[in-house]
């Protein structure tokens, strides 16, 4: 059916439902325009011609009042920001105060982290384990044949926060029995920090009579003076009595005895 027939049928009100659908399609595709359907076109014209009143001045007034209120609301936070940044620039002490405050906060946080919590316990356990390992390593190295290994072992003791009785005993044994003079001298030095322990002190005094090396004997004599250990005099005199004691050593020991007495 051609569109003219369709329109004519529409005008006479004789469209079947299929033809109505066809007209819908024609309108959708633009083959038939609404203007061609006279009755509807007239109705549309009437509808379009219906007057609409003018909006009142109140509407405009209310709009501009709302717009102004929104503008002010949005500018306020900006102004506050500017005030702060101006203060920041004009008052340098504020920057200093800010820096100091940050440092204090940092220190506080550090102290808080260090002093409490599970983490610090874990850290303590970990460092205890490391000390234990170092101790075992040191004792193992002391038994090695190489003097350099034994020196390493002796030096390791300086890294231990607090030497156990086992360590000091091993060191005293090294001081008395190690065949290398350098190792014995290093051991003596390593024992010095623990000289306040009665057992170590006792061991050092006993060691004087056992030493053959003049260097170690002199070092021991000096240490006794430093420690103000009067009980060592007896042992020092034993060294003096020895026939093979070199004169330099003898002289040194005599001076030490004089100081101690």
């Amino acid at each position: 059916m051609d569109t003219k027939d369709l329109i004519n049928k529409y005008r006479s009100g004789q469209l079947s439902s299929d033809e109505e659908k066809m007209l819908d399609r024609c309108i959708e595709t633009g083959e038939v325009s609404l203007e061609e359907l006279d009755d509807l076109a007239a109705l549309k014209n009437n509808f379009d011609a219906m007057p609409v009143p003018e909006p009142s001045q109140n509407m405009s007034d209310a709009f501009y009042a709302n717009l102004e209120a929104t503008k002010q609301k949005e500018q306020r936070p900006k102004a506050e920001g500017n005030w702060f940044s101006q203060l920041w620039v004009t008052q340098p002490f504020l920057r200093w105060a800010y820096s100091v405050a940050l440092i204090i906060v940092g220190l506080g946080a550090g102290y808080w982290l260090k002093s409490g919590g599970e983490d610090s316990d874990k850290l303590e356990n970990l460092s205890a384990e490391v000390s234990e390992m170092k101790e075992v390593m040191m004792l193992t190295l002391l038994d090695k044949e190489s003097p350099s290994d034994r020196l390493k072992a002796v030096n390791l003791t300086s890294e231990l926060p607090d030497a156990s009785a086992k360590v000091t005993e091993a060191l005293l044994q090294t001081l008395n029995q190690d065949e290398n003079v350098n190792v014995r001298l290093a051991t003596l030095e390593a024992l010095y920090p623990y000289a306040s322990h009665p057992q170590v002190r006792e061991g050092l005094i006993k060691s004087i009579a056992l030493q053959e090396s003049p260097l170690v004997q002199m070092a021991l004599a000096e240490m006794m003076v430093a420690l103000q250990e009067k009980r060592s005099v007896q042992n020092l005199e034993k060294v003096l009595k020895k026939e093979n004691t070199p004169p330099e050593v003898r002289e040194r020991i005599e001076k030490s005895i004089e100081v101690l007495i």
Binding site: I27, E28, T29, D39, L40, L43, K44, F47
Partner: peptide, 21 residues
């Protein structure tokens, strides 16, 4: 919706308006 669909909507609205009228 498409331009064509708008035309159909207007057409149907006008038909309904006409019926009521």
């Amino acid at each position: 919706c498409s331009e064509g669909a708008v035309k159909v909507k207007v057409f149907r609205a006008l038909q309904a308006l006409k019926r009521e009228y």
